[in-house]
Each structure stands twice: as structure tokens, then as C-alpha cells.
Simulated assay, not measured.
Amino acid sequence: MAKRGFPMGMGGNIGNLMKQAQKIQQDMAKAQEELAEKTVEATVGGGAVTVVATGHKEIREIRISKDAVDPDDVETLEDLVLAAVNEALRQADELAKNVMGGITGAFGNLPGLF
């Protein structure tokens, strides 16, 4: 008599697969919350400009030293702000990669997905 259910004996493992998927989903939601709370800080120009961003790439704060404000050289200040923002966003990406990496690595443990 032929067995019913999933091919190649997967029927017994589908419950485990579903439990693993639910755990990953919960872990990812928790990690997203964590990223919203964590911040990174980038400083350029020897402390002239500092940018604080969340792990969700939201800029929370920009601090500009009074010494960096020269009405005759606005372009330099603009370049410093741009560099600090880009560095803060790069750090936020790295933070997200580190936080999410432990979770997404679990996908390798789910048989038949990859």
C-alpha cells in the first residue's frame, strides 16, 4: 500500500519545518525592533560633523561644530555633512547585517529551501 502525504518522507518533518519557520519569523521581528533602537555614530573632519542614525537608517541627529561653520566656505561643510551621513548609513547597514545575519543563517538549516 502506498504512503500518502509528502514525497520522500517529508510528511514527518513538515511540523518541524513549520516550527523553525515560526521561530525565524519571531526572531526577525525581535531583531527589527532591536535595530530600531540601536544607533551608530559617524564623525568626520576631526569632529566637525557627527551624524547619529538608527539601524533602520533613520538619521536621528546631526551635530556641527561651530568651528566648522565658515560662511565663506559652505561647500566644505556640505561635503562634511554628506560624508558623515554616508558613513552613518554604511555603519547602519553593517549593524543590520550583523544583527540579521544570525537569523538568516538559520535558513540554511531548513531542508529543501536552498
Rank of each mutant, 00 (worst) to 15 (best):
V40S: 00
A31Q: 05
R63W: 05
N86W: 11
Q25C: 09
V81S: 07
P111R: 15
D27N: 14
E41Q: 09
A68F: 11
A36C: 04
V40Y: 01
E94S: 12
G112M: 09
L95V: 04
M8K: 15
L77A: 13
A36L: 00
G55Q: 03
L80P: 07
A31S: 04
E94D: 13
S65N: 15
L17I: 10
D27K: 07
L113Q: 06
E78I: 02
R90H: 06
L89D: 05
G45C: 04
A31C: 04
T43W: 05
A31D: 03
V52F: 03
V52Y: 00
K66C: 03
G5A: 08
K66I: 01
L110R: 08
V81A: 15
G108F: 01
Q32D: 13
G46N: 14
I14M: 15
K38S: 00
N16D: 12
Q22I: 08
I24D: 09
E34M: 00
I59K: 02
Q22E: 14
R90N: 03
L80C: 07
I64P: 08
L82S: 13
L113V: 14
M18T: 12
A42H: 07
M1V: 11
Q22H: 09
D79F: 12
G46V: 13
E87D: 14
R4Q: 13
I59H: 01
A42D: 04
N86A: 05
K97W: 03
G12C: 02
E75Y: 14
E75H: 12
V40G: 01
M18W: 07
V69Q: 06
L89A: 02
P71S: 07
G55C: 03
D67A: 15
V44E: 06
K3S: 04
V51W: 00
K23H: 12
T39I: 09
L89I: 06
G45Y: 07
A53N: 03
